[in-house]
Design a protein around this nucleic acid. Structure first.
Lengths: 341, 341
DNA sequence: GCTTTTCTGAGGTACGTACCTCAGAAATGT
DNA sequence: ACATTTCTGAGGTACGTACCTCAGAAAAGC
C-alpha cells in the first residue's frame, strides 16, 4: 500500500486539490461541513502530509537558538560541541542550531534578547537560564509571536504544556544518595555536599532527593550543610579544608554542581589516604580522568548529545505541530563508573 | 547565505545541470577532468545534496527489516514495541521498519532467508542472530547485492567496516562485576552467575569482564561456575536450589542473560532473609518491579528504543552512503537503580 | 427573482532533485 | 580530413506539496 497523497485525499473527500490545500493549511473560505468531509477522509485513508515535500515547496528551513550562559564550564563546552555536531546531522533535514551566549544572572537582559527575536529569523529557542518571572514572561510572549521555546537543563518550573529538556534533579539527587549510601563505609560518618550555589532550583532539588534517600536508608550517615563554592578557587579550597579539619569522619562527598573540578581538587589536597566515596555530576574530560584514576567513584550524567538533539527534535516537532516520541525525549539519569565509561 | 542547489553548482563548475547530475549520481559519460571540476566546485561552494528533494524525485522510501528470534522474551517484546514506535517517527522521513522472526538456532534457515531478500523490496536488515559462518557469508552476499546489513545486539564478530549495534558485552560484564563488588558484603563469600546458555559469545564476554573485575579488586569474593538455565523453569529451580544449598555463603548473584525472570524467581524461593546482592540485565516489566521491591539491586541495560533507532539510522546512512554521528550511535551501558528508573 | 457574498474547482508555477531524450560539440581513431 | 566515438548541453517531465489566480457554482440576502 503506497502512501496516499493530497490527490488521493481530494478524490477520497470528493473535493478538489485546492480545497484540500485550504483545509490542510487552514486557510479561510471553506464551509464547515466541507472541512469535516476532508478531515474524515484524512482519517479514512490515513493521509499524512509529506513534510519533506511541504518544506521543499515552502522553501522552509528551521533555525533554532540555544541560549547558554557564558562561562568556561567544561560541561557547557561539551554542549556547544554537540550543537555543532548536531548541525551536521540535521542539515539534511534543513535544520540548523546556533548558540547565543547570555549573562545567566541578568534576567532582564535575557528577556530583552528574547523580545528582540524575529519570528522570520528564528523558529525556536532552547533557554538555559535560572528561573525568573521576567524570563518566564518573555518566554510566553515568544510563543505568542510564533517562536517555540523549551526550557533547557536549567530552570523554569514547567507547568502544563511547557517542555523541559533535562533530567529530574530530585531523582538525580536521590540516585547520588543511593550510591553514596552503598559506596561509603558502613559505619557512622559524615557526608560533605558541595555546590556552586544553593540558590538555584536544580541544586535544591538535588540536595532534597539526596537527603531523602540518606535519611531513609542510611541513618548512620550524617549529611553536612551544603558548601557553596561560588566558582571561586580560593574560597573552595578554604571551605573544603575547613570541613575536613572539623569533620575527620567524612566518608562520602557529593559534588552536586556541573563543574566538579574545583571541589575535587580541593578534596585531593585534603585527603590522600583513606579517601571518601565521591559522587559528582556530568562527564567532562576532568571527571572522566577522575573516574579512571579512581578518585571519583561514580558520575551522574546526562548525555549532552542527547540533550541537544532532544531539544532540537522537540522544537522541530512543535514547529510542525507534531507530537514527539515521549520515550525518545526522556533524558536519562545515567550512572557512570570506570567500567561503563 | 542560502543553501546552494544543483543549479548553483552547475554555474560554479561551469557545466550544465545535466553534467552535474551525471557526476552526482555517478552515471557514465563524463570525462575525468570534468568530474574533477564538478567535485572541486562542490567543495568550493559547499554544496550538499538535499536528500529530501532527491528522495521525492526518486519516489524513494526506505524499508528495513529486523530479524529477531521468535521467543517470548520480555526484552524482545520491548524491542518489537520500539520498532513499532520508531515507525511513527520515521514515517515522516519515508522510512519504515518491519520485524521478521527467525529460528535463531538455525543458521541455515537464516542464511536462506537473507538470500531470498529482494533488493527492490528491502533496503537494509538488522540481524540478531548468534555468530555462525553461514550467516556471516549470507551477510556479505547481502551487501554485495545492495542490501545493507548490521549486526543487531547479538552476535557476529565485527571486523573492519562491519557495524554492530549493541553494547560492549565485556564492559557490561565488568560493570556488573564492579557493582557486585561494591554492593555485596565486604567479607568472604561466593558469587553465583546464572545464564541461559554459555555457548553464546555475549554470555562468554560478559562473564569474562565480570571475572576480571572481581578477580582484580574483590579477592574476598569467589565466582562460582556459571549455571545454565536453558530457559527451562524446572531445571532453573533445581540448579539454583542446589547452588544455594551447597553454598550457604552466596553474597551476590549476577544474572547475565536478558531474561532474568526464571533465575530471579528461583532465587526468591531460596533466600528470603539476608538476600544476596543481585545484578541483572535489561529493563523489563519484571526487572523493573524487582528493582522497586528491592529484590534486584541494580540493572545493567541498553535502551531498546535507542537500539532500534540507532540501527535504523545506521542502515539509512549506509543507503545514502553517508557517515553517521558516531557519538549518537554509541549504545551506552546503563546502570539502573530504583532512583534513576 | 435577482444581486451579492461566500465557497469551490481548475489550472498554473514553484521548490530541488532525478532521470530521460536528443542534438550537437569535442575528442579520438584512421 | 574524415568518420567514429565519447562527451556535454538544453530541454523536458516528474515527485508531493504550497500558494496563487480566476472563473464559476452555491448559498445568502433582499
Amino acid at each position: 500500500m503506497i502512501r496516499p497523497t493530497t490527490r488521493d485525499l481530494a478524490k477520497a473527500a470528493g473535493v478538489s486539490l485546492a480545497t484540500v490545500d485550504r483545509v490542510l493549511n487552514d486557510r479561510s473560505g471553506v464551509r464547515d461541513d466541507t472541512v469535516k468531509r476532508v478531515t474524515e477522509a484524512i482519517e479514512k485513508i490515513g493521509f499524512a502530509r509529506n513534510i519533506s515535500a511541504a518544506n521543499l515547496a515552502r522553501r522552509k528551513s528551521y533555525r533554532f537558538l540555544f541560549l547558554l550562559p557564558r562561562t568556561g564550564d567544561q560541561f557547557l563546552d561539551q554542549l556547544i560541541g554537540r550543537i555543532a555536531e548536531a548541525n551536521l546531522g540535521f542539515a539534511a533535514e534543513m535544520m540548523r542550531a546556533e548558540v547565543a551566549h547570555i549573562h545567566e544572572s541578568d534576567p532582564h537582559q535575557i528577556a530583552n534578547f528574547l523580545a528582540a527575536l524575529d519570528p522570520d529569523q528564528v523558529d525556536g529557542v532552547a533557554i538555559m537560564a535560572p528561573e525568573s518571572p521576567q524570563v518566564r514572561d518573555a518566554k510566553s510572549r515568544l510563543t505568542e509571536r510564533g517562536i517555540e521555546a523549551v526550557a533547557f537543563l536549567s530552570g523554569q518550573i514547567t507547568t502544563g504544556s511547557e517542555v523541559f529538556v533535562g533530567i529530574d534533579n530530585h531523582a538525580a539527587g536521590a540516585t547520588a544518595g543511593r550510591l553514596i549510601g552503598r559506596f561509603a563505609e558502613r559505619q557512622p560518618g559524615k557526608i560533605l555536599v558541595i555546590a556552586e550555589t544553593m540558590r538555584a532550583r536544580d541544586s535544591l532539588e538535588r540536595r532534597l532527593g539526596f537527603d531523602e534517600v540518606i535519611g531513609a536508608d542510611y541513618p548512620h550517615l550524617t549529611v553536612l550543610p551544603s558548601l557553596e563554592t561560588h566558582g571561586d578557587p580560593d574560597r573552595t579550597e578554604r571551605i573544603v579544608t575547613a570541613s575536613f579539619r572539623n569533620h575527620p569522619d567524612i566518608t562520602g562527598v557529593y559534588v552536586l554542581g556541573s563543574e566538579a573540578r574545583l571541589p575535587l581538587q580541593a578534596i585531593t589536597c585534603n585527603r590522600d589516604a583513606d579517601p571518601p566515596a565521591i559522587i559528582a555530576h556530568e562527564r567532562t574530560p576532568f571527571t572522566e580522568t577522575g573516574l579512571m584514576t579512581r578518585q571519583i567513584d561514580a558520575l551522574i550524567t546526562q548525555d549532552p548529545g542527547h540533550l541537544v538533539r532532544s531539544a532540537i527534535r522537540i522544537l522541530r516537532a512543535r514547529c510542525d505541530r507534531r507530537e514527539v516520541l515521549a520515550s525518545q525525549e526522556k533524558i536519562r539519569i545515567e550512572i557512570l563508573i570506570r567500567e561503563n565509561l
